[in-house]
C-alpha cells in the first residue's frame, strides 16, 4: 500500500504532457468471505500493438510456497495480453491489493497520443472476475464505464 502511494504520487508530480488519471473503484461487497481483489489496469492501442500495464494489485506480502504472485494468472485477460511476460514486483506498477473505494492511478508521462482501450480486470479469491473495457482518445479524451459485479466505476480523466 505505502510503496504504491509513493510511486503514484511521484508519477503525478512529474507533471507530464499527457497527464491524466485513471480512477478504479473497488466495490464494497456483502459476502461471507471477502478478500480484496487482484486488479490489473492496462491500455491497449486501439489499432493493436503492445499493451501497457499501468497497475497491478496483488498480495505482495504473501511469500513461501504459495506466494501472492501464484494467482496473477487469474487476471486471465491481462495475463494473456502481457502480464505473463512481466516480472513482479514491477517498479511503479505493482502494489498491494486495495480496500473498497476509489483509487487513482496516474497515466504515464511518456504515453503517445492516440486511440486506446482502457482495460480494468478484477479477480477475487472465492469470488468472481470481471473485465471492464472502455475506448479513450489520449491525451484529451475522457472515459467512463461501470462494472457489474467485481468492479465499480472506472474513469479516465485527462487534465
Amino acid at each position: 500500500m505505502r510503496p504504491t502511494s509513493v510511486l503514484l504520487l511521484g508519477g503525478a508530480l512529474a507533471a507530464p504532457a499527457t497527464a491524466g488519471t485513471v480512477t478504479v473503484t473497488v466495490p464494497r461487497l456483502s459476502v461471507a468471505e471477502y478478500h480484496r481483489p487482484y486488479v490489473a489496469v492496462w491500455l491497449e492501442p486501439a489499432g493493436g500493438g503492445t499493451p501497457r500495464t499501468l497497475a497491478v494489485w496483488y498480495d505482495i506480502r504473501k511469500a513461501g510456497n504459495e506466494p501472492g504472485t501464484k494467482w496473477l494468472s487469474e487476471l486471465r485477460a491481462w495475463w494473456r495480453k502481457g502480464g505473463r511476460g512481466m516480472a513482479m514486483p514491477a517498479d511503479g506498477i505493482s502494489g498491494a491489493t486495495q480496500a473498497p473505494g476509489p483509487h487513482n492511478i496516474a497515466l504515464p508521462a511518456d504515453l503517445k497520443p492516440g486511440a486506446y482501450v482502457l482495460n480494468v480486470e478484477a479477480a477475487r479469491e472465492t469470488g468472481g472476475r470481471e473485465l471492464v473495457s472502455v475506448p479513450v482518445n489520449l491525451p484529451a479524451g475522457n472515459a467512463r464505464a461501470t462494472g457489474k459485479a467485481e468492479l465499480g466505476a472506472v474513469t479516465l480523466s485527462a487534465r
Binding site: N65, T69, K70, W71, L72, S73, R76, W79, R84
Partner: peptide, 8 residues
C-alpha cells in the same frame, strides 16, 4: 495449462 511463476 497456465500458471504464474515457477513454484507451481
Amino acid at each position: 495449462t497456465i500458471v504464474s511463476g515457477t513454484d507451481n
